[in-house]
């Protein structure tokens, strides 16, 4: 039976997930006055890595030096802790529904290698874009939309608009 086979993918109803996510955003704003984020932690990691590998370079660079503080490590950051929480939370959820396991998910039409290459290049682009726009889908678009930020709405439209425009070229990877 197909249903048995698909059982591993039984996810929450998207409206239910969205409702809970909305409540969480309200809660986050109520407690901390700011929204959620994800790419900030990766930026902090990069800054920390560069800072430990080449401190002089990090000190002199116009971008890294913004996030360097003599009194504390760049990893001592709200978003880094939040990201740790995300990892724990996802692990719990995946553990409950039995989704944990080393695997590469890709369309049967493409090879694993191709999937990884595209994932890597997609990651580079997303990292670059998230730095230019000062936030990713969670930090800029989702949290921005919750407070009606113009920048958040523009970022959201730009992300989804271009993604739809370019979806055609990447269709082999997914369908």
């Amino acid at each position: 039976m197909k249903i048995k086979k698909q059982n591993k993918h039984l996810y929450w109803n998207p409206y239910y997930g969205g409702f809970l996510l909305g409540i969480l955003i309200i809660f986050t704003f109520y407690i901390t006055g700011r929204g959620l984020g994800a790419s900030g932690a990766m930026k902090s990691s990069v800054v920390a890595i560069v800072n430990s590998a080449a401190p002089e370079h990090a000190e002199s660079s116009a971008y890294y030096s913004k996030f360097l503080d003599d009194t504390k490590s760049p990893m001592n950051n709200w978003l880094v802790f939040e990201t740790l929480g995300v990892l724990i939370g996802a692990l719990i959820s995946g553990g409950i529904s039995g989704r944990i396991g080393w695997r590469t998910q890709h369309s049967p039409k493409i090879t694993r290698r191709r999937r990884l290459i595209f994932a890597f290049s997609g990651g580079i682009l997303f990292g670059l874009g998230a730095q230019i726009a000062r936030g990713c889908t969670s930090g800029a678009a989702l949290s921005g939309m919750a407070v009606l930020s113009s920048g958040g709405f523009i970022t959201m439209l730009a992300i989804f608009g271009t993604a739809y425009l370019f979806a055609y070229f990447f269709r082999k990877n997914w369908i």
């Binding site: 959620l36 994800a38 790419s39 990766m42 995300v86 595209f118 994932a119 890597f120 290049s121 997609g122 990651g123 580079i124 682009l125 997303f126 990292g127 670059l128 874009g129 998230a130 730095q131 230019i132 726009a133 000062r134 990713c136 889908t137 969670s138 800029a140 920048g151 523009i154 970022t155 959201m156 439209l157 730009a158 992300i159 989804f160 608009g161 271009t162 993604a163 739809y164 425009l165 370019f166 979806a167 990447f170 990877n173 997914w174």
Partner: peptide, 21 residues
């Protein structure tokens, strides 16, 4: 920055299939 960054993120999204979170 929002438009260009968003556009780059959009391509990254559809190529990589994830967003950071």
């Amino acid at each position: 920055a929002a438009i260009i960054g968003g556009a780059i993120m959009g391509i990254g999204f559809v190529a990589g299939g994830f967003c950071p979170g």
